[in-house]
Design a protein around this nucleic acid. Structure first.
Lengths: 128, 128
DNA sequence: TCCTTAATGATAACAATTATCAATAATATT
DNA sequence: AATATTATTGATAATTGTTATCATTAAGGA
């Protein structure tokens, strides 16, 4: 007996999967508790970490000092706005050039690529 | 009178500039105190944040939950090893393809690009 | 040299995360 | 189906990284 499928883990994954806002643990907690108020926040911390290890959930690197999570593990990059602090998904930016360069110049085995663009978003640019 | 040049700020920047290990605040603290043991850690936190705002120091995004700092603000990417957790600088990876795609597809103003490769380094690959 | 106040150092406060532990419940064994 | 085993849970304490507070110090203009 190694790992068990618990109701809580299922709810946590389902909830994150339905969200597209890259929530922090506490934001995810709130959403999970809307479905089942008995779920403890330590359980959310534990299961999200497990899901990251299992590769089912992705930890999004941001510059606000708090971890954000994304149930979409397909390769895509993020943009964070300095003004409104929103996180955007960009699915149309290809990272193959980077991967190619890595293979050409280095012996490192790359397993994941984290990319974050920082700047001013479309909307905030206009309201200046 | 707006900002003042303090001895502490100078020591902190000099010290970080001499280090090439992308230290955390506490690691930087240690190095600073080796030169002047009277410097408080709150002062290191405050000055490093100021230096980041001034664009003289760069906050390196990593996946270990702690901020790391780099006095080299020229555009370059980082690689973190999952085994030994070391951070490497890669100066030969060009990000111009990404910048070009961003300009072509989006209206966002990109001011900074954070890139972190995650995987297994040269050295750790061999010792398996 | 004096004066103003930005910056410091020490420490308290805060926030995010992890560890502890008795109780619960998933699943292997009977 | 009943039982035993133990991974997981929920509550909470502990820890860690960072920020706020405040009396004191010192940078730099008058």
């Amino acid at each position: 007996m190694n790992t068990r499928n618990t109701r809580q883990k299922e709810i946590i994954f389902q909830t994150l999967n339905e969200m597209h806002t890259h929530p922090t643990i506490l934001e995810l907690c709130e959403a999970v508790r809307y479905k089942d108020s008995s779920v403890g926040q330590a359980t959310v911390y534990r299961n999200v970490s497990k899901l990251v290890e299992e590769g089912k959930v992705r930890r999004v690197l941001t510059n606000d000092g708090v971890d954000h999570y994304d149930a979409d593990c397909s390769q895509h990059v993020h943009f964070v706005c300095r003004k409104c602090h929103r996180l955007f998904d960009l699915y149309d930016i290809s990272t193959s050039s980077l991967a190619k360069q890595m293979k050409g110049y280095h012996e490192f085995d790359v397993e994941k690529i984290h990319i974050l663009f920082e700047g001013t978003c479309d909307h905030c640019k206009q309201s200046l």
